[in-house]
Design a protein around this nucleic acid. Structure first.
Lengths: 235, 235
DNA sequence: CGCGGGGTTGAACATTCTCAAGAACTGTGG
DNA sequence: CCACAGTTCTTGAGAATGTTCAACCCCGCG
């Protein structure tokens, strides 16, 4: 966190309210309770490409993404990067910090300019014991994340790259709010390859295949038009 | 849970105390609190090979393994099984039941004769709100499980079967209490292959390779003597 | 307009999977 | 205690899938 731009939030700084109020695990709370939380929250900014933490770093904070995107990845013994999650607004990480051993096992890097909110484990623990419903919300979030992670394992272990990619594109398409058929990759194709558990070369080939089959059309480096979703899902 | 043998615990049934008292998430509680928990716990037995639940089943309970072993697995679209966890004494699953959508996403099968303790989500929720420290313990457990799952994803995506197998054997060796070099696989090789994200054929070949290299010696179907752990880890 | 990183393409290679057949083990019943 | 049956495991050969390395291209940007 060397080059990070720290700033302790002032108690009534409404401009940072989003940091707390729009986070799923807090948004069932009353305004008074949110005020209480805001008093223990710090805000930090990272530029695109900056590391938020490294594996092995000690930490005592929960990280909540307020603005931007963060990739969380592991490195295998021979240095290959495996992206395990991409955090967007409202997502959090660093929950291991809550407990005895607070050493990060993963790497976190800002994919774009990003603002992070921090709560120290001591403050968080107090909050959890005082408001058990927050703990329930976090449990809920964990359940989902665990299910996702296990599905990701299964997908990497049993499906071909082609299938994984098709499912990924379909997911992006479903999440897309605009009613166009154009989706935008949230990261570089190099990173996407790492996320899908393959190499940039293979990813490129499969996308080319899809394009040849008229399932998609690529526009620039991150834009993809979905031409035939059904066919994509039958891959 | 069709053929299961249900039995509501009587309040003072000491013979089932282990169901509660030796579970990590409860063992920081006072005896009185454990008594309270025991009153809402049910015990169910399953024979080897019986299904505990299927994906798609609705459920409203947390499952805690008291005796035996349970494999949790997912099925891919083409029917391939991916084992995501093997539960032993004290492990629990079914936490999604805590929340709105209580449909199992995985399959659970008893690997040996097994006794399970059940707590309904309504009872559990009451307990969690009353004793926030239990929620903290579950959060802790989730953190670890999530980290394990993400490591498993990375391992399957970036390491070769040879490496994954070597690490698995080393893990078993480390966990082993007896000071012998003999380890016992907790499941069939077919299941182990599914756990490691490969096929029985490939698993068999890699084990044969290790044996040829004098790293291990196989005895029967589930016993393996570790001859050279260091070499194994350099694979 | 040239530079640089990401992206693409090709060809050889490595790993793993599949299918099929045969061998070994386990536990069961005589 | 042995033999048998059923399963689990092993082995082989060929095919599919994905990786690696190297060269090239192209898009975006100063």
């Amino acid at each position: 966190m060397s080059q990070a731009n720290f700033c302790q939030l002032s108690d009534n700084n409404q401009s940072h309210l989003g940091c707390v109020s729009r986070v799923p695990i807090f948004n069932h709370l009353t305004p008074e309770q949110m005020q209480e939380i805001m008093q223990v929250v710090q805000s930090v900014s990272f530029k695109k490409g900056e590391m938020i933490y490294y594996a092995g770093d000690t930490s005592n904070s929960l990280y909540i993404v307020n603005r931007g995107q963060v990739k969380i990845y592991l490195l295998s013994e021979d240095g290959k990067e495996q992206i395990v999650r991409v955090l967007k607004h409202g997502d959090f990480i660093g929950e291991l910090a809550l407990f005895q051993q607070s050493v990060h096992e993963s790497y976190a890097e800002a994919l774009v300019n990003t603002q992070i909110c921090l709560i120290t484990s001591a403050d968080l623990e107090k909050l959890l014991l005082k408001y058990p419903t927050i703990a329930m919300e976090i449990l809920h979030e964990f359940s989902n994340r665990l299910a996702d992670s296990e599905k990701q394992t299964m997908s990497v272990a049993t499906e071909r790259v082609e299938t994984r990619l098709a499912l990924y594109l379909a997911d992006l398409y479903d999440q897309d709010i605009s009613n166009s058929n154009m989706i935008t990759l949230p990261m570089s194709k190099k990173d996407l390859a790492a996320y899908l558990g393959t190499t940039p070369e293979t990813l490129s080939r499969r996308l080319t295949d899809f394009e040849a089959a008229q399932y998609i059309r690529q526009k620039g480096q991150r834009k993809i038009e979905i031409l035939n979703l059904d066919a994509l899902l039958l891959v």
